[in-house]
Write a protein that binds this DNA or RNA. Structure first.
Length: 861
RNA sequence: GCCCGUGUGGCGGAACUGGUAGACGCGCACGACUCAAAAUCGUGUUCCUUCGGGAGUGGGGGUUCGAUUCCCUCCACGGGCACCA
């Protein structure tokens, strides 16, 4: 039997699409646009199954929207700066640029073999000077607006590699590469003022209706808005104040101490005159920052000997501690401790024998219970009470509910001038400086006389030097003999370039906007951006739920404030797909085995030479567990369409997809089945373009026609809702019906031909190569990718008769055929007349009959 | 600890707004074709059953004529955040 040669035919159609420039987009103002984008890949080496899934989903949407008449933009590029390139350079002695572009070449080829409807004419890599020049312009624009600024900040410092580490690069308090204990250092760093938009970014989450609720929640939590008060505690004996932030001003009368962060400026100042404090601060700095270390670390403090005055009770004095659990980054870096109603404060108070003063009690306690509650909490409890209730022991706040007490407390603070209501965010400004070579250079010069001087626009781009020695560790740009030495653009005196590069998240925060006009002389061309943006459908992994997606939202606002774009929200609809996972295999010694080394069948597995294999957990594909399936191998064996079909068929796209050999085999069978169905001559010959014969609506042909239109309707709905697995199931059902159409008359021949043509149109977005192949075989005009989407004819969506379920007391007893327009009385009469119903009814009289037209008849006895 | 998800056959999963649970696929079994195998096609496949039925969507309870769907509660798994004052 003739077989479908995927390798040859898929390559053929890819070449045709390329030759015809089928997917190159242009701005066509009279047509509705649709911008679909998948998160662009980091060129790490090769495409993995996660990419295949991501780009398959995006391509289905792109091709479907194109068929629906949209002017589709579907571009691709490379997130090409980053640490792995530098590591490869060190390990393999290749230049990061060379390594990166080799990977890009490989991965581009792999993506092309998937048959994606991408506009390759817009391709760029973020490491190209043409791209990062524009990014440097953005940086300078931000600088001009006060959105980029410089300040000293605490960083994770790797003393061996001589570099700053991101939080994610610190594992159990040690540098991820050097293994050396990480130090806290204060360095001059560049920041983007994302906090300026904290409230706006939070508010606007409500408008992102087509984003997953999960992502919206994560962003809300990340921004972390909390309302409370700033309170000034005056130091006894000095005209100085310590500011604290609290969300519980209602518990101020329960305060028994103040605590400063070890990094609080006052802590450092005091340590200058106190060796004991200095050594305590050192101890705090050396403590691990890992989760485990934090969990186990006791609450330690150092009594500074200072005292502050209570803002409401000037006669009351509170001791000031430095405490290891107070974060410098949040609030003011200082807290007041209310042990009765905060667990951490209670732990601390018990350790240092500080007073515990209950000031909130659960409402509706009788006198005795309350007395017991207060005594217990004050004297022995190890758990603080942070529940609701009424305020006690608190002068003017007494008997108020907690929320009312907060308002009253703030009001009094403001009257006294000792504080005011305030909103705090967890969100901090975005530190973008990286002491790395392979990134976008920060376009400023440091001049002894003029300070920080922006590089003038005509001198951009500030390009990375090629002759670089990455072997020395630390910042290679810093070590470069000549690169950093320039004349100050303002005064002409010898000056130094900023040797830091930008965080790679900067590169990905605006690339989607650049795709609208990838070769423009400014970051974005206003007309192109106005036409294409926002991205209508963005697709990617949940791992970017916060950083990338939040930074991009920030960037659009920042660019808007620089008059570079007129947009706030970059992505109107977001879809986060699940991971591709696979069984893990281990041999008798516990060593991991790759799927290629294992033969699986009937729930058992062994190696190819017959040794026993243990089937382990299903996990994300990873090199370390060896449960990786090679994409090239799959595409070479089964073709891209089969891989795509399988990606869509088994699981809903937002859940994890279990890759299985059996699953891909099933998709392969279906691929061939459709090919044979459409290729068999008796099905494709007759009836092209002729009007529907009279008899087609009757009998077997009529049944198939109705199913055809139902399928079109259903698949359309499914694709709109990202229910690809259901669309696949529907197409399966439809193919089953189409194959079993037995009639041989003229009407059947016509329906068969029309049925196959419709099938080809429906599978086009999902299996595009096979679609083109069969479109051609059917004698279709032009390319399938330019054909309109089939329309369901409502006439065929209504049935003459419907099946009605008949229940007795909610249990199914029969099904009956009734005319689809039958009224309640008819349905009830037919149901009661049913033989099976009569048998179950015996002598009983129905007490009640509920008829839901079109659904069910329930007889209650 | 707090905040989200998710629990349905041997497996992946369907079931729109409370109305025939298990669509479709995988796997398995049997059959057809074949000298044989592969491929292909067909039939069956939730469990129990005395073949009348009965049970069943993580467990328990509730609302309803009727619950996978709504409410309460507990359990398991997954994810996010986490000394955030």
């Amino acid at each position: 039997m003739e077989r479908y040669n995927t390798r040859e035919r898929e390559a053929h159609w890819q070449a045709v699409w390329q030759r015809e420039a089928a997917f190159e987009a242009a701005e066509l103002p009279d047509r509705p646009k649709y911008y679909v984008l998948e998160m662009f890949p980091y060129p790490s080496g090769r495409i993995h199954m996660g990419h295949v899934r991501n780009y398959t989903i995006g391509d289905v949407i792109a091709r479907y929207k194109r068929a629906r008449g949209f002017n589709v933009l579907h571009p691709m590029g490379w997130d090409a700066f980053g640490l792995p390139a530098e590591n490869a350079a060190i390990e393999r002695k290749v230049h990061p640029r060379e390594w990166t572009f080799e990977n890009i070449a490989t991965m581009r080829q792999q993506l092309k073999s998937m048959g994606l409807s991408l506009d390759w004419s817009r391709e760029f890599a973020t490491c190209q000077p043409e791209y990062y020049e524009q990014q440097q312009k953005l940086f300078l624009a931000f600088l001009g607006q006060g959105l980029a600024y410089r300040r000293k900040s605490w960083v994770n410092w790797d003393p061996v590699d001589q570099t700053v580490l991101a939080n994610e690069q610190v594992i159990d308090g040690r540098g991820w590469r050097s293994g050396a204990p990480v130090e806290r250092r204060k360095l001059e760093q560049w920041f983007f003022r994302i906090t300026r938009y904290a409230d706006e970014l939070l508010q606007a989450i409500e408008t992102l209706e087509r984003w997953p609720e999960k992502v919206r929640t994560m962003q809300r939590n990340w921004i972390g808005r909390s309302t409370g008060a700033k309170v000034r505690f005056r130091l006894a004996d000095r005209e100085e104040w310590i500011e604290v932030f609290t969300t519980r001003p209602d518990t101020l009368f329960g305060a028994s101490f103040l605590a400063l962060s070890p990094q609080h400026p006052l802590s450092a100042a005091l340590a200058e005159h106190s060796p004991e404090l200095a050594s305590f601060l050192e101890e705090c700095a050396s403590l691990g920052t890992s989760e485990a270390a934090i969990e186990q670390a006791p609450k330690l403090g150092f009594d500074t000997g200072l005292e502050v005055l209570h803002p409401y009770l000037p006669e009351m004095r509170l001791p000031v501690y430095v405490a290891n659990f107070v974060l410098v980054e949040y609030g003011t870096g200082a807290i007041f401790g209310c042990p009765a109603h905060d667990q951490r404060d209670l732990d601390f108070a018990r350790r240092y024998a500080l007073p515990v003063i209950p000031v909130v009690a659960p409402a509706d306690q009788d006198e005795e219970t309350r007395a017991h509650y207060v005594r217990h909490l004050a004297e022995e409890a190890s758990e603080a009470y942070d529940g609701p209730g009424v305020v006690i022991n608190s002068h003017f706040l007494n008997d108020l509910e907690v929320e009312a007490a907060k308002r009253a407390a703030i009001e009094r603070l403001e009257q006294l001038g000792e504080g005011e209501g305030e909103v705090q965010y967890r969100l901090r400004d975005w530190g973008v400086s990286r002491q790395r070579y392979w990134g976008c250079p920060i376009p400023v010069v440091h001049c002894a006389g003029c300070g920080v001087v922006p590089v003038p626009e005509e001198q951009l781009p500030v390009t990375l030097p090629d002759d670089i020695d990455l072997g020395k560790g630390g910042n290679a740009l810093e070590h470069h003999p000549t690169w950093k030495h320039v004349d100050c653009p303002e005064c002409g005196a010898p000056a130094l370039r900023d040797c830091d590069t930008m965080d790679t998240f900067v590169d990905s925060s605006w690339y989607f906007a650049r795709f609208c006009s990838p070769f423009a002389e400014q970051p974005v061309d206003a007309a192109a951006a106005r036409y294409w943006l926002p991205v209508d459908q963005y697709i990617g992994g949940i791992e970017h739920a916060v950083l990338h997606l939040l930074y991009s939202r920030f960037f659009m606002r920042a660019m808007k404030d620089c008059d570079l774009i007129d947009l706030e929200e970059p992505f109107s609809s977001l879809f986060t797909q699940g991971m591709v996972v696979h069984e893990t295999y281990a041999d008798e010694k516990g060593a991991w085995l790759s799927p290629a080394e294992v033969v699986v069948g009937g729930g058992k597995a062994e190696t190819k030479d017959g040794r026993p294999v243990t089937i382990g957990r299903i996990e994300k594909m990873s090199k370390s567990k060896k449960n990786v399936v090679d994409t090239d191998h799959i595409i070479a064996s089964y073709g891209a369409d089969t891989a795509r079909w399988f990606m869509l068929s088994d699981s809903p796209p937002d859940r994890d997809l279990v890759w299985s050999e059996a699953g891909i085999e099933g998709a392969w069978r279906f691929n061939n089945r459709v090919w044979r169905l459409a290729k068999s001559p008796e099905r494709s010959m007759a009836a092209a373009g002729t009007p529907m014969p009279d008899g087609a609506k009757e009998g077997e042909s009529g049944t198939l026609l109705r199913q055809l239109h139902r399928t079109v309707e259903g698949v359309t709905q499914d694709l709109e809702r990202f229910h690809f697995n259901r669309a696949v199931a529907r197409v399966h059902e439809y193919v089953n019906a189409l194959t079993s159409l037995k009639a041989e008359d003229e009407a059947a021949a016509w329906v068969r031909r029309f049925g196959v043509e419709t099938l080809v149109r429906l599978i086009g977005p999902m299996m595009p190569h096979l679609g083109e192949e069969l479109w051609e075989a059917l004698g279709g005009e032009g390319l399938l990718c330019d054909q309109p989407w089939p329309e369901a004819d409502p006439v065929f969506l209504v049935e003459d008769t419907i099946t009605l379920a008949v229940q007795m007391n909610g249990k199914l007893r029969a099904t009956i055929e009734v005319p689809s327009d039958a009224d309640k009385e008819t349905a009830e009469r037919l149901a009661l007349a049913d033989e099976s119903v009569q048998r179950h009814l015996a002598d009983q009289t129905p007490r009640r009959v509920i008829v839901v037209p079109g659904r069910v008849v329930n007889i209650v006895v």
